[in-house]
Design a protein around this nucleic acid. Sequence first.
DNA 1: AGCCAGGGACCCA
DNA 2: TGGGTCCATGGC
Length: 250
Amino acid sequence: MESGQPPEFLWQKTARGYARKIGGKVCEVWSEGGRLHFTPGFEGETNRLFRARDDLPAIERALSTDRIMRSAISHYRGLRLTESGPWETTVCFICSINNNIPRIKKMVQSLMRDGEVMPPEEMARADLAGLRLGYREKYLKATAKKAESIDWDALREADLHHARAKLKELPGVGDKVADCILLFGLGRLEAFPVDVWIRRAMEEHYGKRTLKQIHSFAEKKWGMFAGYAQQYLYCLARSCPLPSEGEYIE
DNA sequence: AGCCAGGGACCCA
DNA sequence: TGGGTCCATGGC
């Protein structure tokens, strides 16, 4: 929830966990006694958010092929990729362009109505001037217009490069943002978003410098779990917070 | 005060 | 295809 993934922008910290509105109702998630708890009625949403079907031990084993990754996995034991809605994920990462996390969160919150990210139809006609979005405003408006005709579910199954190309037709969506939408919004675990932190980590730990080198290396080395490898590297590079005592969930 | 931020569009060779 | 340059704004 605090590892730079979309929930960091979409959920609010509460006394015991995190909360947001889904479908007009408040959903809260928290940990207690080493178990995950959630507001009754949100089991499906919670399972999707934390990707309950991912076999973490198997993924950790598959990625434990070198010292760096073993260290990151051991340090961030229990880290999970999250899955948010594709539209809100798109909004989050258009806001992320050349931006920092505290401000991304403020910008995403400013694009919410009644506790949820405005749907495309509403964003397309909303007056976003005054929200201090910078040059991202025109990307959001233009992408909101196009987003209504996107078949998100088709992109879950499509060939990755095809899906990536389709997403890049959206204004403000380039390679990195497309990979983030694929990974965090469409459950494509093989996607490997490369931001400045991942670029630095890949050069420092694996001697890979160019984007092409990095993607080729990641695909060969981590394959269908490259997205998880990316998140471990990101948390390591950013020194993301660890769960405090009692929050850890098996 | 000034560098930097989960980059993309555009132009040029 | 690959490499500058510009872009709005605020966090730290």
